[in-house]
Amino acid sequence: MTAPHLRLAQDPHDRLAVHRKDDAWLAERWADESSRVLVVSGTRVQPVDGRIEWVAPSEAPEGLRVLLGEREGRAWFAVVTGPEEAKGDASWLPLRGLLPSLSDDNVTVAPLVLHALGLAEWHFATRFCPRCGGRLEATAAGHELVCTQCGKAQFPRTDPAVIMVVTSGEPGAEDERCLLGRQAVWPPGRYSTLAGFCEPGETLEDAVRREVAEETGVAVGEVSYFSSQPWPLPASLMVGFVARATSTEITVDEVEIEDARWFTRAEMREQAESGQLVLPGGVSISRSLIEHWYGGTLPGQW
């Protein structure tokens, strides 16, 4: 079974990092009308009839040109303009609003869109040099910012976050259970895998153990890598794990987690079918982790 979240990472583009500072090459590919450009206003994109629209370079507005790379024998760019164009216009959507489109007809361009919006978010949030407060200037086709005052270079940052399905019992046994939790702000019935950010000086495996213990009071022993998913909301990499619990008593923190429950496969299927349990969407690694443990597809989603 193909993990659902991998649909957003299929057919990745060649990022062509070697050409990011090659002005002659960049100018030549920009002059080629077969090149494609995604227009980003601030951190938002305006789909047309539910589809991501790519335009020719001659149709693109002025803005920061970002080289995304090459795919299908053509160059792909993004032009990042100020947020003014999208202000007050509900047709311009942030990445979360684009996910339904990316999971359907536009899934083949999803890696390009994730790349473009990840960089747009970085440019939007990184305005001044963290060393001296000087003005930053974009270079390397949008992949580097250099301080005009002290010369310090800044590069896009990605925050590692762990996300895990926690299991208890003999693997594959009828009474094996998995642990899901919910936040108080979520609609009734919505549950998901636990997740959290890795702290400085911490391994990813220890981050899994710490987050599960902090949020639910459950102790975790063995931690096995599952898969990863870029998640630029605004700048994360979700690293998925399967964790084996060494205790089962739940004590939620009542801060990040309102409730947490153990589910057998039979309980999960029955409650998902009735709508009592609402699971994460199919493009999320959380869904993939749950269905990996369950052993098949499940009905319903956010």
Rank of each mutant, 00 (worst) to 15 (best):
Arg209Asp: 01
Arg210Asn: 13
Arg210Trp: 06
Glu211Phe: 05
Glu211Lys: 15
Glu211Tyr: 07
Val212His: 09
Ala213Arg: 14
Glu214Lys: 12
Glu215Ala: 04
Gly217Ala: 11
Gly217Arg: 10
Val218Thr: 01
Val218Gly: 04
Val220Leu: 03
Val220Arg: 10
Gly221Trp: 01
Gly221Phe: 09
Gly221Gln: 07
Glu222Cys: 07
Glu222Lys: 13
Glu222Asp: 08
Val223Ala: 12
Tyr225Arg: 12
Tyr225Trp: 13
Phe226Val: 01
Pro230Glu: 02
Trp231Glu: 04
Leu233Cys: 03
Leu233Gln: 04
Pro234Asn: 03
Ala235Trp: 00
Ala235Gly: 15
Ser236Pro: 00
Leu237Ser: 02
Met238Asn: 07
Gly240Arg: 00
Gly240Cys: 00
Gly240Leu: 01
Phe241His: 07
Val242Tyr: 00
Val242Pro: 04
Arg244Pro: 00
Ala245Gln: 07
Thr246His: 05
Ser247Gly: 03
Thr248Lys: 12
Thr248Pro: 01
Glu249Leu: 09
Ile250His: 14
Thr251Val: 11
Thr251Arg: 15
Thr251Gly: 13
Val252Ser: 11
Val252Glu: 09
Val252Trp: 06
Asp253Gln: 07
Asp253Cys: 07
Glu254Met: 12
Val255Asp: 15
Val255Phe: 15
Glu256Phe: 10
Ile257Arg: 05
Arg261Ile: 08
Arg261Trp: 12
Arg261Cys: 12
Trp262Thr: 11
Arg265Gln: 07
Ala266Pro: 06
Ala266Tyr: 10
Arg269Thr: 08
Arg269Trp: 08
Glu270Tyr: 10
Glu270Arg: 13
Gln271Ile: 01
Ala272Cys: 13
Glu273Thr: 13
Glu273Cys: 07
Glu273Leu: 09
Ser274His: 11
Ser274Cys: 10
Gly275Leu: 13
Leu277Arg: 08
Leu277Asn: 11
